[in-house]
Design a binder for these strands. Structure first.
Lengths: 294, 294
DNA sequence: TAAAAATACTCCATAGGTATTTTAT
DNA sequence: ATAAAATACCTATGGAGTATTTTTA
């Protein structure tokens, strides 16, 4: 059986005439006749009683026509679904971000994204790198935003921006008087407050500390960057904060830049290599890139 | 689009694996892959995100799968309809009969018909020849039973039986004393009661009268054979009655046979030449033939 | 390395076409 | 004589196959 055959059948039913039906279906009359005969052969029944003067449907033929119409309608609805979706920027986009990026990046990019892609429904998820990757690979997320890291997953990397790490100190800290960038050496032998395990920012900060001769302040591990900054503000210690988060002034905290070469982290977007929405995700990435430029 | 393609799509959805889906559909993996790609091309959208390790359906893909299942189900119901109907003796049979045959033939044949063809639903219509032919040609009737007549319609003729015409006289009539067949000459110069216009029996009787030198009794025209016989019983006159109707004894009426060659009429069944149910109608005709033999 | 999908090709079944015949009014 | 379907026959698309390559866990 064949969808085309069903169209032929319905056309004959509607027009009561093989030749006209063939015309409506843009095929020749013998083609349509032949196909309908094959349909009947396949089903092992006769649907139409033909003569040169009259086209009569058998009771079974009429029933089949009813079913055929239903099928053709559903086929149409598939075509419509497809047509509605042919705008790559339409539909749902499920995007995950690491917690040390999300709250700071989203305010910058959301207005532009909704403006440029009004047909896109953005669903945002804040998760740690591991879970982001997992959900991305499982197909639960269409794209994720995180700090660059080496992996060998079948993903495509879209660079978004590179952000410097800033040194966050209490406003009362002696270092807070610096208005110019400081050297990494200010960290030497100091203890630095860290996020709890699982945050990629923790690893990035640990890396900086290692090369600067600092170590982790083992007394606390913050669960979020907000907490971290509160701890800094209350004089519990210093910490490293990425630039985007440091853009927003925070009471009781001074953000110091490092002298070049300042430590940085690279924020990228990942998409599955075979994602069907590579173009759409690329468009989104471009908007993000543009929005982050100060 | 193609019903087969939709089966492929659903199979991939169910099994999450192109190779296994291909196996289930009894085709090779490249065939299934290729067809699905063509389906996506035709619709201009992607339904599946493929990688060698994972099969992911896009949201649109899942919607299409839902519609595809619906289509496949309806296709199945068409196949079932066909399967149920592959017994040629199953289903409805709409059969028309002339009024001077129906009431006398049906009691003879109905028991055997329902016994031999239990799956057949017989719908019976009593109409005059003209209307029978008209409805037969229009397809409203599958077959008609009537007296043979010349026509040039695209119909096939199935002989059923030949019945003699009997002379119906009142029990009190002087002719009623005859126990042996009478000659047509008994009609000479007599007036004969007739059915009203439109009944083929009227024409047959008129023919007999013409050749026997009788004429119509113009005072009455009966609307049914029952009325005709009542008129005969009350002594209003004589009439001609076909043999099957004369089999049943009627109060106050005597049926006299004619000497050979007795006038007869031939009862036949007509089917449209292209009827899809020629075999079935033939079967029915054969049962009627067999049942009429006394 | 193994499993799975994609690719590259070959083949043939069949949907489709044209020309003609048959049928019925 | 005409309109319509069937038939005969040819063509070409595309569905299906095999062999191979690519990809990724």
């Amino acid at each position: 059986m064949n969808i085309r055959d069903l169209q032929y059948l319905v056309a004959v039913y509607d027009l009561n005439n093989f030749s006209k039906a063939a015309e409506r279906c843009f095929v020749s009359q013998p083609t349509l006749s032949g196909q309908l005969k094959k349909l009947e052969d396949e089903l092992g029944v006769s649907l139409i009683e033909r003569s040169t003067r009259q086209v009569l449907f058998t009771p079974l033929g009429e029933k089949v026509v009813t079913q055929a119409r239903e099928i053709l309608q559903t086929v149409g609805s598939i075509r419509n679904l497809a047509k509605e979706n042919d705008d790559p920027m339409a539909g749902e986009f499920h995007i995950g971000l690491i917690p040390t990026v999300g709250p700071f990046l989203l305010p910058l990019v959301m207005p532009e994204l909704s403006k440029q892609f009004p047909k896109a429904s953005l669903y945002l998820y804040e998760l740690q790198t591991n879970q982001l990757i997992e959900k991305l690979l499982k197909g639960e997320l269409d794209a994720v935003v995180l700090a660059k890291l080496d992996w060998q997953h079948p993903v495509q990397e879209l660079p978004l921006y590179e952000e410097e790490m800033k040194l966050a100190v209490a406003s009362e800290d002696v270092l807070a008087v610096n208005t110019n960038p400081v050297g990494l050496d200010v960290l030497e032998n100091r203890s630095v407050l860290m996020l709890e395990d699982g945050h990629c920012l923790r690893n990035q900060a640990l890396g900086v500390c290692f090369s600067a001769g600092a170590k982790e302040d083992g007394r606390f591990q913050a669960t979020s960057m907000d907490t971290l900054l509160h701890m800094v503000a209350t004089g519990a210690g210093m910490t490293l904060i990425p630039e985007l988060a440091a853009r927003k002034p925070t009471d009781g905290v001074r953000f110091l830049s490092f002298r070049n070469p300042a430590p940085t982290r690279e924020i990228i977007m990942l998409v599955r290599k075979h994602s069907t929405r590579l173009v759409a995700i690329n468009n989104i990435a471009n908007v993000i890139k543009a929005s982050v430029i100060e």
